[in-house]
Structures are given as structure tokens and as C-alpha cells.
Design a protein around this nucleic acid. Structure first.
Lengths: 303, 303
DNA sequence: GATATCTATAGGTTATACTTATAGACAGAT
DNA sequence: ATCTGTCTATAAGTATAACCTATAGATATC
């Protein structure tokens, strides 16, 4: 039994005439006779009572047509749904993001994406950099927002942009006043400052410490937190200084706000990327999400 | 999109492995790869994320599999239902019958048929001989119980058996007494008897009159009725004589019962047949009904 | 680093749905 | 009654496409 045969049968039932049905199906009339005969033989049942002057459904034919119509409808629905997915009218993308960074970047991306592709469902999943890499490598997320370098080599990525790293100091800190006069601070000048940093395991903690080491000193860590907001509040109350990604520096949300100072050349930065599994097929929905993501981050970097 | 491709896809989804799926489908692995690729190309959507070490469904693939399974199930159900009809496990036969004759014959046939083919539905339709022929010729009944000759030439028939025609007389009629002594009555002896017959239009009325004419006289008709039971009651009360088909004579149902006498050689008879439209395909259910009908009538005739 | 196992591709064969031409049956018109 | 047009079925050949085997190329495992 073939879908073609179901369609042929429905057309004959509708037209009650082989020649006319064949025309509508854009095949020659003998093909239609052949296919119907073949189907009837396979089923062991005559579907149409026919002679040169009339074509009518048998009892079996009536039952057949009823169910065949339902099958053809279901096939059509399936085809339509696949077309919707392919045309990006529907779909799903699971996006992983680092909690600190995602909380600041995704609110800019999601509304733009939603307005363009209303029927694509986005699922967010926040975790540490290392876990995100694992989730993405194993296919549990389609994409992840991460920063270079990536630890897992089976991940491919596209660069979203460079993100400057800023210095955060208490409002009354001397470096704040100096910066107001246009003098930028270099990293090595922080050698004797008390540092407040994220706890071990978070990607940015590692980056902070390594930037200090590259500048020639080991940071004096006086406090650690899992939460970047807490780190910033502590800085604001005068307990020390820290480094922060620029996109976070832009929008302090608490009442305890440190002062953010750009650092001197060479300005430290990190490269933000969307990562996905190497060789993995990206759905059109995922591709569209990357596209929107890149455009949005590029727009933010310009500010 | 082909049913074959749906089945292949389901098998791959079940096995998560092309080679194993190909084995189960009894095709070579490259054929499976080809068919899936073709389907994906047609749909514009990747259904499986695959490489040498893993095969997993994409989002689109999951939706596809879900609906494809429903379609395959519906096809299987349809195939099963057609098989049921073809195997005579289900079906429908519309049977027409003459009211007088059918009422006496069908009660013998139907229970036998029902016990053999419980799921075949029988619809009865009683009408005059002429109307039955028309209904059968136009396909509104599958079969009709009739007696020869048939008026409409597009009808084919199978003979069920010969049915003797008996004479019915009042209990006190001299012919009854004579018959008790073993002397059979010839038709021409009824020349001066008053006849009670069916009304014009019923097949058996015509037959009665013609039998008399063949015996050399015009019957003196003193009363006519549309109902054979009435005719017999009137005979029983002494108003006249009549001819009756033997299967009716066998089972008088009223309290006014005439005496039934066999006629002398050449014993008149009529040929009972099941008629159907010439060239018409008979469903297996209809064939089975004819078969049962013939066997049952043959059994009755033996009594 | 060798081996086994996976999916994809290449090239050739076979099955089959398609085509045109025509037969044969019937309905309606001349 | 014969002719004509129209119907479905059959015959025979062609073209499509599903299939096969062989093998490439990638990855996991020993």
C-alpha cells in the first residue's frame, strides 16, 4: 500500500470517473487503472464497482476512502509541520549561558529574537562555564554563551565580540579621582590593593587572577563570593577592588555601586563566543539565534 | 514523502543505529542512508543528528517520529480492516426478497448464515418482483430472491431450486377427500372452480393465471387480495380454490387453514433464483450468502 | 598505532510506475 | 441498426528510482 495509491483512490472516489481523475492527477488513465488494480489485488477487495458507464464505491471502498482520507490529511499535516520548522516558523533552541554574563546580555537579545521569530521557543539554562561546555558537547544545549578559551576541543564557536574588562573601585578610592582627571590605571598599579573576587570554579575568577599574574603580581584576595553582585557591593562599601566584564559594569543594579574605571593599554578583554558541538548540524532556529546574538552584541559594543 | 520512508525513519529512531535498522528492515545500510537523506532533503529539515559514533533525533525528528507513528498505525488499521472484509470477517449484504416467499424461506437461511459469518450484516428489503428486479439492476440490493422468468436482461442469476406448486382447497371440498385416497388432481379439472388469487402486479398472480391458461381454461376469479395469507384464509372458509407455492403450503400460520393437495403430472413448479446485476462483482460476503442460500433451499426441497 | 565499526558516496542492476497505442464494452445519435 | 464518442482494461516499451555491492572516510576501542 502506497500513499500514491491512497491519493489515486480518493481522486477516483471524488470524480467517479477514471479518465477525469487521471487528468486531475496529471497521469495517464491506464496508470490509474493499473495502480488501482494493484491496490485491490493487494488488499483482496474490490474498491470500485465499475464498467464503461459507471464507477461506484463498494462497501469496502467506502470504508477505505474514509480512512484513506484521514491518513492523507495526517501526512499533509506532518509535511506542513516540517515545513514550518524548516521555514523557521516554529522550532526550539536550548541556550546555555554563564549566569553573570547571560543575565546582562540575554535580556538584550531575547526581545529582538522573539519579535522576529515569534514561534521559536527558547529555553535558557544557566550554569558554570565548565558545565556549560560539557552540556553543549553532549548535545543537551544547542548553543552556549561562553568566553575563550574553551576547554573542550570538540566545541566549535563563533565570536560574538570582544568585551573590555573594567576596574571596579570604591567611590572614595584615590584611583577614582585620578580617573576623573583622565588618567587611566594600569593593572600593575593594583599590586597592593585588596582584591574581592568570585569563588574558584567560575570562569571569570580564573581570568582575574591570570590577568594579575600577567601584570606581574599575585592578587591579595581578601574576600570571595559566588555572586558577582555581592562582589560589586563589597567593593562599593570600600572593602577592596575587583575586575569586572564591561557589560556588567554598564548596568549596576544595586544601591551599593562601585566606580568603574577603564584600564590603561593594553586594555584587558575577553572574547565572548557562542559555542556548539563541532560538526553538529545547527537547526535554522539555532542559526537564526546566533545571527541575532551577534548583531545585538555588536550593537552593545558600539556604545 | 513515502510510507516506506516513514517506516525507515521509525526504525532508525528505534535502533539509533543505521546498520542495525537496515538489518531489521531487510535492506542494505546504504539504501537506508539514501532514503533518509532524500526525505530530509524533501522536508528541508534534518531528522537525525548523526556521526560515526551516535545517532540522535533532532527537535524536528522528534515531532516527525511522533506523527509518523500515528500514520503508520492508521495504515496498518486500514490494511487490517480491508483484510477483515476480504476474509469475510466483516461485511454487508443487502438482500431483496418477494414478501410472500422471503417470509417463508429467509427464516431458514438467516440463522445458518449468521452462525457462520457473525460479523456480516444482512439488510432485508421486501418488494414486488418487478421492483426487486429494478433495485437489483440498479445496484441498490446486492442480491434478490426471485423466480423465473426475469424481466430485466441485465440480471444474472443462480438457481436455488425448483418449487412445486400445490393446490389449496377448502377442507370439505370433494377434491380433498379424493386426494386422501391417493388420486391427484389435474389442473384442467379446476376449470369450473371459483378462484381466489393475488392482485395484479404480484408475480405469482401472473403465474397462476398462466398455468390455468396452459391447462386450457381461463380461471374464474371471484376474489383478489394483496396478501397471500388472506387468500388462504378465504380458501379455508370455502370461498374458492387457489394455487400456492409449496414452501408456503408447508407452514400455514393462521387458524383458517385450507387443505393443500399435490397436483398431478406434469406437476407445475417455479424456479427460485438469486439474481444479481450481470457483470457485477459480488463481494465475498454476497457469494457466501448465495452459497448458504442454495444449501438451505436444497435442504428444504428434500423434505 | 592497528583494528573494528559506523555512516556516506559511487556505480551498476533491477523493479516498477510511467508512457502511448489499442482493444473491447457500452450509450446515445443518426 | 449502425455509427460515433467515451469509458476502462490490456499490451509493450521507457524512464525513474530503489536497490545492491564495493569502498571511502571518520571515529571509537584495543
Amino acid at each position: 500500500m502506497e500513499l500514491r495509491q491512497l491519493q489515486y483512490t480518493l481522486q477516483i472516489a471524488a470524480e467517479r470517473n477514471f479518465s477525469r481523475a487521471a487528468d486531475k492527477l496529471h497521469i495517464a488513465q491506464p496508470s490509474l487503472s493499473q495502480q488501482l488494480s494493484k491496490l485491490e489485488k493487494e488488499l483482496g477487495v474490490l474498491l470500485f464497482q465499475r464498467n464503461t458507464s459507471s464507477v461506484e464505491l463498494t462497501h469496502a471502498g467506502e470504508k477505505f476512502v474514509e480512512q484513506a482520507q484521514a491518513i492523507i490529511d495526517a501526512v499533509e499535516l506532518l509535511r506542513q509541520e516540517m515545513s514550518d520548522i524548516s521555514q523557521l516558523r516554529t522550532g526550539r533552541v536550548v541556550v546555555g549561558s554563564m549566569p553573570i554574563t547571560g543575565a546582562h546580555l540575554l535580556p538584550h537579545v531575547l526581545p529582538v529574537f522573539k519579535s522576529k521569530y515569534a514561534e521559536v521557543e527558547i529555553t535558557l539554562l544557566e550554569d558554570s562555564s565548565m558545565n556549560l561546555e560539557k552540556l553543549t558537547a553532549s548535545g543537551q544545549t544547542d548553543l552556549s554563551l561562553l568566553s575563550l578559551p574553551l576547554e573542550i576541543p570538540t566545541l566549535a564557536y563563533e565570536v560574538l565580540g570582544e568585551e573590555r574588562i573594567d576596574l571596579a573601585v570604591p567611590p572614595e578610592h584615590p584611583l577614582a579621582a585620578r580617573s576623573a582627571q583622565g588618567i587611566r590605571t594600569s593593572l600593575h598599579e593594583l599590586k597592593n590593593e585588596p582584591f574581592i573576587v568570585l569563588k574558584e570554579g567560575q570562569g571569570f575568577r580564573k581570568m582575574t587572577v591570570e590577568l594579575c599574574r600577567e601584570a606581574g603580581f599575585e592578587p591579595q584576595i581578601v574576600f570571595e563570593s559566588n555572586n558577582m553582585e555581592t562582589v560589586q557591593s563589597l567593593v562599593a562599601t570600600g572593602m577592596g577592588v575587583t575586575l569586572v566584564p564591561h557589560f556588567i559594569a554598564r548596568a549596576p543594579r544595586s544601591e551599593f555601586v562601585p566606580v568603574y574605571l577603564p584600564l590603561a593599554d593594553p586594555v584587558p578583554s575577553r572574547t565572548l563566543v557562542v559555542a556548539y558541538r563541532r560538526g553538529r548540524y545547527l537547526s535554522r532556529a539555532a542559526e537564526a539565534f546566533i545571527e541575532t546574538f551577534k548583531a545585538t552584541v555588536a550593537g552593545l559594543a558600539d556604545e
